[in-house]
Design a protein around this nucleic acid. Sequence first.
DNA 1: GACCTTATGACAACACCGTTGACCTGTTAA
DNA 2: TTAACAGGTCAACGGTGTTGTCATAAGGTC
Lengths: 239, 239
Amino acid sequence: MTDRVVRPAARQRRRPTKQGVVLSEELIVETALRLIEEHGADALSVRRLGRALGADPSSLYRYFRHTDDLMLAIADELIGRTLRTWRPTGDWRADLRDLGMRMHAGALAHPRAAVLSSYRVTGRGYEIQAVETILGVLRGAGFPDAEAVRIYHAFVDQALSFGALDAAGAALPRAAREAETAVWRAKYGRLPADTHPHIAATARHLVADMRHSSYPVALDLLLSAAEVRLTEIRGRPEA
Amino acid sequence: MTDRVVRPAARQRRRPTKQGVVLSEELIVETALRLIEEHGADALSVRRLGRALGADPSSLYRYFRHTDDLMLAIADELIGRTLRTWRPTGDWRADLRDLGMRMHAGALAHPRAAVLSSYRVTGRGYEIQAVETILGVLRGAGFPDAEAVRIYHAFVDQALSFGALDAAGAALPRAAREAETAVWRAKYGRLPADTHPHIAATARHLVADMRHSSYPVALDLLLSAAEVRLTEIRGRPEA
DNA sequence: GACCTTATGACAACACCGTTGACCTGTTAA
DNA sequence: TTAACAGGTCAACGGTGTTGTCATAAGGTC
C-alpha cells in the first residue's frame, strides 16, 4: 500500500464530507479530546470518532496512520496545554509542586492519552522546553548539576507514572471503578482484628484514604527530601 | 442470566475439554501469564486464551465473570510471587526499601502483565496479605495510624507506578527503545548553550542518568522524607 | 449397575472493533 | 475546458468480548 496519509502542509483539496464537515488534523484531535471528556475513555474508537465528526471512519486514515498516531498527536497537544498555563514564581519548591500537580491533572483529564504517552520520549519542542525549564528551576535553587539531574529525573518520572497510574484507574469502566471502592469498604473494612490486626486498626483511614490519589503525598515527600538534601549541600558547598 | 461462575470450592465435576484438558482457575491464570510473557499483552484475549488452553472461549466464563476478573486473578498471582520471597528483618526502612525493589524487579520480570495489573485493586488473598504486612512494618516503626496509611499508600503506588512505567519502556520493541536513547544522546546532548543553557550544562549527566530507572532514587527520597517525619513525630508523641 | 440431576463444556450468534483495497467525485491547476 | 488526483465512501476481513442454548458426562443414590 502506498501511504494514504498526506502531510498537513500539502493538503489542498478540502472537500467536505457527505454531512458537510471539512476535516482537518486539528478538528479530529479536538473532537477526540471532547469525546474522551464527555463519554469516557471507552467512547474513543475510530468508528465512534467518525460518527461524531460526521465522516466515514476510514476517512481518518487520510490523517493518521493508525490509532496510535492519533493518540500521540493528542498527547502532544496535552503537553503543550500543561506547559502553556504554568508560570514559575522563583520559589523552586512551590514551582515544582505546581508543575507536578498540573501534569497529574492533565493526565487525569485525558486518561487514555496519558497512559500511552507516559513512557515515551518524544524529543519534540514542548518536551525539550519542559526539560530546560525544570533543570533551570533546580539549578537556580542551588542543586549541583549531577544532583539536579537525579532529582529532575525522579520528579518527572514520578509525575508521569502517577499520572498514568491514576489515569488508568480513571479510565476504567464505571462499573469496575465502583467495584474498587466497594472492595475497600466491604472487604478491607471488615477484616477481623485477630487475623489482620494492622488492617483492622487502620480500616477507617484506609477506606477514606484509598479513594484519593496518593500523588500529592508522594510529591510532597519527594520535595521534602530534596529540600533536606539542599540544606546539607549548602552546609558544605564543595561536596 | 443466573451467574455462570461457580466458586472454586464448589467445583466437583472435573470434566475434560474436547481436547482433553482439565480446566482450573490456576491453570487458566498460569496460561494467561505465559501467553502475555511470550506474545505480548495484546496476545491476551479470551479467544486466544481458550485456544492456548485447548478449550472453547466461552468455557472460561465458568471460571471468571469477565475479562476483568481474570486480570485481577493474574495481578494477585504476581503479588503473591513477589511477597513469597521477601523476609522482613525488623529495620523498617531497609525492609521497605527491599520490598520496593522487589516489586519493581517483579514488574520488570513480567513487563506486560505488570502494565495491565498495576492499577487494579484485587481484594484477593495475596494483596490483603501485602497490605497487612506493610502496614505492620510502618506501625511497628512508630508511625501513627493515619500517617502509616498515607505513607503506605504513597509507597505502594510509587512501586506500582514506577514498575509499570519502566516495564512499559522495557516492553517496547527493540528498535523503539534504541531510538529513545538515541534521542537523548543526539538531540539533548547537542543543544546549544545560548538557547538551552541548563540542558547544555548538564548534558553529560543527562545522557548517563536517563538510561537507568529513576525508581531507586525516588524510593530513597520517599523513605528519607518518611524518616524525617518519624523523628518529628517522636519529638512530640501526642501530635 | 442403572438412573437422575446438573455442572460444565461446546456451539452459534450478536454487536462491536481497527484496518484496508477499490471506487467515485469534486477541486484545482494548467 | 479539461485532466489529474486528493480525499471521502463503501464493503469487506478478521478480530474482539459476551451470552443464550444445548448436549453430555460426572457423581450421588438406590
